[in-house]
Design a protein around this nucleic acid. Sequence first.
DNA 1: TAAATAACTGACTATTTGGTTGGATTACCT
DNA 2: AGGTAATCCAACCAAATAGTCAGTTATTTA
Lengths: 210, 210
Amino acid sequence: MNDNKKPNKQGRIREQSQEKIIVAAQEEFILQGYKGSTVQSIADRAGLPKANILYYFKNKENIYHAVLEKTLNMWDEGIGDIDPDNGPKVAIEKFIAAKVKMSFHHPSASKIYAMEIIQGAQHLKDFARTYLRQWVRAKAKLFQQWIDNGEMKDVDPVSLIFLIWSSTQHYADFETQILTIMNRADYEEEDVEAVTKFLTDFILRGCGLK
Amino acid sequence: MNDNKKPNKQGRIREQSQEKIIVAAQEEFILQGYKGSTVQSIADRAGLPKANILYYFKNKENIYHAVLEKTLNMWDEGIGDIDPDNGPKVAIEKFIAAKVKMSFHHPSASKIYAMEIIQGAQHLKDFARTYLRQWVRAKAKLFQQWIDNGEMKDVDPVSLIFLIWSSTQHYADFETQILTIMNRADYEEEDVEAVTKFLTDFILRGCGLK
DNA sequence: TAAATAACTGACTATTTGGTTGGATTACCT
DNA sequence: AGGTAATCCAACCAAATAGTCAGTTATTTA
């Protein structure tokens, strides 16, 4: 994700190994689930001996926590806070574009997150209860102001947020299904544009902004 | 799910037990994943001794297959085939209503399905490649005809289908997150109506049908 | 009611797996 | 170069778990 320009001192190897492990673990957790991923399988995928994995992460659960943390960081970097300054049209356009980009470029993050939520958000209860709830309320308020000002149609802001989330994340979480249905091996860059355009047009129209 | 009016003969107990086991297993698989669900935990949830579970299902994988099969049956019962006779507006209305109803009334089915797909559809590859792909193509064709006839706006039919799927299923798969954000304990019947209304209005508008 | 069949269950086993340990090896600094 | 701390790793162990089995109880049928 980042670089390799860290001071050539202690800790460099540590960071590299941890990163390798997290990436391997993420893939493994998606494919096999938490319990189904063995420390050995993560080690194999990372190209390290098992004991080495446990040397960098005290135990399996810590690996999972590290994966989750990385996922959440990516989440709120990539989500690109809704921009309140240029009216609802620009805000929605930017938001959709950011989320679609995330879904196509980092589907793994979205998948890990989705699995957590489906399984009852056992590790993310606090995140949802505090951070997420506040986020949604703040953004809903923003939309409501635009509605009250007559700048967009009167739609329920919270439902709108859910719709944007779901329709964009779908391309990450259900990647396999979508590719199978379209009889394709991989997404291509033009898919990102096409989907962004479709969703932007469609949703803006739904909001009475087009 | 169904009844207890089966002939009072051999096989009745078998059916009841199997049903109990499948329901328990479904819940367990959602919460703990396949590998994380132990036969013992399924047994406890079903209120039966472990050996009894293995008596009705040869092994754990068979239990999972039974759960998946039940899920798929529910899927194509509940999806309510798109009705081609009354134009796009009615078709979309009915389709959305059916899917929202499914999501709120049978979230477990949707969750099991979602987990399978996220994990790479390892048991559903064939289903997607044959059944699902044909379904989407047939429905897309239908929408395209309506578009060609000028009965609805020119939007990409496949993208539209994905949007309807994702926005409706979201309420099942992300149940936990939605409830947490809205600070609620459970869905209520009026939520079904509200969501149906929101999505129907919004999507019809997106299709230029309102 | 008696035989036959289905349902049930506790106890056991082979295997898998998370985690430990202790010592070898390598990287880093002065 | 030499010393020190970080890294690496094979072998090991205890706990957990899927599946078996042999024997018991309940139900159906003739």
